[in-house]
Amino acid sequence: MATRKRTLLKVIILGDSGVGKTSLMNQFVNKKFSNQYKATIGADFLTKEVQVEDRLVTMQIWDTAGQERFQSLGVAFYRGADCCVLVYDVNLLKSFESLSNWRDEFLVQASPSDPENFPFMVLGNKVDIDGGNSRVVSEKRAKTWCASKGDIPYFETSAKDDLNVDVAFQCIAKNALKNETDEEIYLPDTIDFSSGSTHTSSSCSC
C-alpha cells in the first residue's frame, strides 16, 4: 500500500466586515465562541487536521479583514488557495449583495487556473439571531444566487450555536480535494462523492 503524503488545503474566508468570519473559523478549529473577538486587522490564520474519507488533510485557514480597504493586502493570502469561502450575514442585505464583489475580487487576485470550476462555498451566518426573525435574506434567494454562479454549495450557519459549522468545513475540504485530484487527473478511487448531505437547510455538491 502506498503511503499517502499529507495533503495541504489552503482555504480563504472572505466577506464583509462583521459577518462572523473569525467566529466561524474559531468555532470550527477550536470549538469555541466568544463575544470578544477583535476586528481582524490584516489577516488571521489557523490550521486544523481533518479526515476526509481515508485521507488526513491539513486545512490552512486564512481569515481576512472585511473592510474593503484591506483588499490590497489580500493577494499574499489569496494566491495558491484551494477553496474560497464567502460569508454573509443573513440579517444584513448589504453583506449578501457584496458576495459578487468578493467572488470577483478573489478570482482577479488569485487568478486560479480554472476559474469556472474553482471551488467556492457560501455560508449564510448568524441564523441564530432573534430566532431567525430578523433575517432579511431568504434561503431561497441565497440558493438561487449560488446556483447562478455555477452551483456553489450553500450552508446556513451559526458560529455562536455551532450550527452546520463542522459540516460546512468538511464539505469545503472535500470540494477542495476533489478539485485537486481533478487537476492531477488522478482517479479518486478512495473518495466517495456520492453521499449527500443530511442537513435539510444546507446543500453540498459533494
Binding site: 477583535k38 486587522i41 490584516g42 489577516a43 493586502l73
Partner: peptide, 18 residues
C-alpha cells in the same frame, strides 16, 4: 512567509492590537 502575514498589524496599530 510574506511580512504581510505577521507584520501588517504591527504598523497599522503600532503594536497596540495584540
Amino acid at each position: 512567509i510574506n511580512p504581510s502575514m505577521y507584520a501588517s498589524q504591527w504598523f497599522i496599530t503600532v503594536f497596540s492590537y495584540s
